[in-house]
């Protein structure tokens, strides 16, 4: 699951900016090329979702018909009848739990690292990013037995592994946020007599809120979309949406149910993404908190 979106940050220049730069105005030939490429890319990104949409409203779609031979909502009905709603709820809770743990831990670590007072900072950074380089199945195969022996309940074990998988995202996102975060605001508030709690609540958190939201979203996605950890470490205690998709995909004639469940799995994160975009825009700091803006601070113009 790869991503680092500068939520709330506009990546396309707005029309006024480009229009005022005479030299930058596109030439007709370049424009044609650009529009063609954009069209191809749009098809590239959107096309795989089309069969999912069609299948989700197809009761019957025999080969080689180009369109469903019988439209209907049987897939949805089956998904609901087979406990789709509680499973959906469970996936959502898992995502929230991962976000609720990994975000504050990541933020704490990031703040300490950014302030530069952590001993062996290189090693610490490397450990925090290492889960990215560890294939999930390796962690699962190794740790299932250890966690079982330690009598860790299955849901807690799943949570632990998923939090570890989410930490690189939250730590990194928050390092970027803290790098752009000016401590002077906090110092000033303190000088003016605000209590530490007050400073945290009224100055510090609001300033890094867009970063926190981004970090939490990424952590949520880790829990929401996981399959391997949930199935092997969870040992069936947690039947989440990807598990249900996996088990239906293992049977013939289930395409409609699989499509409905798949779309259900895509929609909530999309809504969160949209909400994030709006949320980020309300805070002007978001613009400077893009992941890459601070990537090489010394290289900034």
């Amino acid at each position: 699951m790869a991503m680092m979106i500068p939520y709330g940050q506009r990546v396309t220049p707005d029309d006024r900016t480009t229009a005022t730069r005479g030299l930058m105005r596109p030439r007709p030939s370049g424009r044609a090329l650009r529009v063609t490429l954009a069209g191809l890319l749009a098809v590239w990104f959107a096309l795989p979702l089309v069969p999912l949409l069609l299948w989700s409203v197809a009761n019957r779609w025999s080969f080689p018909a180009v369109l469903p031979t019988e439209w209907g909502l049987d897939g949805l009905a089956t998904a609901l009848a087979q406990g789709g709603l509680p499973v959906f709820g469970r996936s959502f809770l898992l995502g929230l739990a991962v976000a609720a743990i990994a975000t504050p831990l990541g933020a704490l670590a990031a703040r300490a690292l950014t302030m530069g007072r952590v001993p062996a900072a290189r090693l610490v950074s490397a450990i925090l990013l290492a889960p990215l380089a560890l294939p999930a199945f390796v962690a699962v195969m190794g740790l299932t037995i250890v966690l079982l022996r330690a009598q860790v309940p299955a849901p807690a074990a799943v949570l632990l592994l998923l939090v570890a998988a989410a930490l690189p995202y939250t730590v990194y996102t928050m390092r970027v946020a803290y790098a752009a975060h000016d401590l002077a605001y906090e110092d000033e508030a303190r000088t003016l007599g605000a209590s530490p709690a007050h400073v945290l609540w009224r100055v510090h958190l609001p300033l890094v809120a867009p970063g926190l939201a981004r970090a939490a979203f990424l952590a949520f996605l880790v829990g929401w979309s996981d399959y391997v950890v949930t199935v092997l470490v969870g040992g069936g205690t947690l039947v989440t949406l990807p598990l249900l998709v996996g088990s239906y995909a293992a049977g013939v004639g289930n395409d409609a149910v699989v499509a409905v469940l798949s779309l259900t799995a895509i929609v909530p994160p999309l809504l969160l993404l949209l909400a994030l975009g709006r949320f980020g825009r309300r805070y002007p700091t978001a613009r400077f908190a893009g992941p890459t803006a601070s990537r090489s601070p010394k290289g900034s113009p």
């Binding site: 650009r34 954009a38 979309s225 399959y227 990807p242």
Partner: peptide, 26 residues
């Protein structure tokens, strides 16, 4: 394309964002 284009850039940006939350299994 996203950084240069205007409308086309935004369309590509939106559609590519759409694929981000799709789990690999799906």
């Amino acid at each position: 394309i996203i950084t240069q284009g205007r409308i086309s850039g935004r369309v590509v940006a939106a559609l590519s964002a759409l694929t981000i939350p799709v789990p690999h299994l799906i």
